[in-house]
Nucleic acid binder design. Structure first.
Lengths: 136, 136
DNA sequence: AAATAACATAAAGTTAACTTGAGGTTTATG
DNA sequence: CATAAACCTCAAGTTAACTTTATGTTATTT
């Protein structure tokens, strides 16, 4: 299944310049072109882009993603590096998960704080109690 | 309890320039100074910084955090805005949580993929099966 | 076939959130 | 009391990941 750059942009919710930028940075080494130079994406390029998005979501910089893509091209001799990289990403993601859970708790407390203040018409109802309740 | 900028930096894992930057941006409107101009943080400033860190963790830009800080200074007439803001942050955080969970799943699959490939000595064991298993 | 939409490149611009550098004052320590 | 550590300001620099602009080509539609 071949796709144009515009189709891929819509499918993956990326902009066309972003896709060109990824290509220029070497993130899509097997991306084909027509004779006239127009990019033709196939399903395997889409898979690559999805992995890129996943790695980006873990906070990995483009240049590190590029290293991973290069390792993939180098074959089985880089399996260990790639495994190690994903183990590290796993640790990062788990830390992110913990952090966002704590953030959610604080936000939920604040929602309650303002909901009750709003009902009371004043924030004063919380003065003196905040520290005990929120541990903020 | 008064704290110096260096103490606060250590306690909250921020740099001293970052704290000065927050101050300059108006995020710490009640921060006091000694006669000679040295910043003196109290517990309420620490609370403010913790809320700032929480909002930052939700992806909120500094200028929006600044608006919130300004609302706080304006008193009860801004309670509704502040409540609405936290409801919005709650939605954002929940979306982040969903996304990071999906990312974690993909990363875990990749860990398994490379672990087994490594054991087999080659990635070939996965060729043809990846799509069925990973739904990537 | 003409017009429009979609594609291309290259280089410069943008943005946020700091960080760094230069130069100077204040406070704490031996 | 001298010297080192910690603080100060202001302006300029950094960085990543795009985005925008300018200009031109290719493909599709009427």
């Amino acid at each position: 299944m071949p796709y144009s750059i515009g189709e891929v942009a819509k499918m993956l919710n990326l902009t066309i310049p972003t896709l060109r930028y990824y290509d220029k940075e070497g993130l899509l080494p097997y991306l084909e072109r027509t004779n006239s130079g127009i990019r033709v994406f196939n399903d395997s390029d889409l898979d690559t882009l999805k992995v890129i998005e996943c790695l980006k979501a873990t906070g990995m910089p483009i240049k590190d993603i590029k290293s991973f893509i290069d390792w993939c091209s180098q074959g089985d001799c880089t399996l260990q590096q790639r495994y190690d990289m994903f183990l590290e990403r796993k640790a990062v993601v788990e830390a992110q998960l913990e952090k966002i859970k704590k953030t959610a708790e604080t936000i939920n407390f604040k929602c309650w704080y303002y909901k009750t203040a709003l009902e009371a018409g004043t924030e004063l109802i919380h003065k003196g109690t905040e520290k005990t309740i929120s541990k903020l």
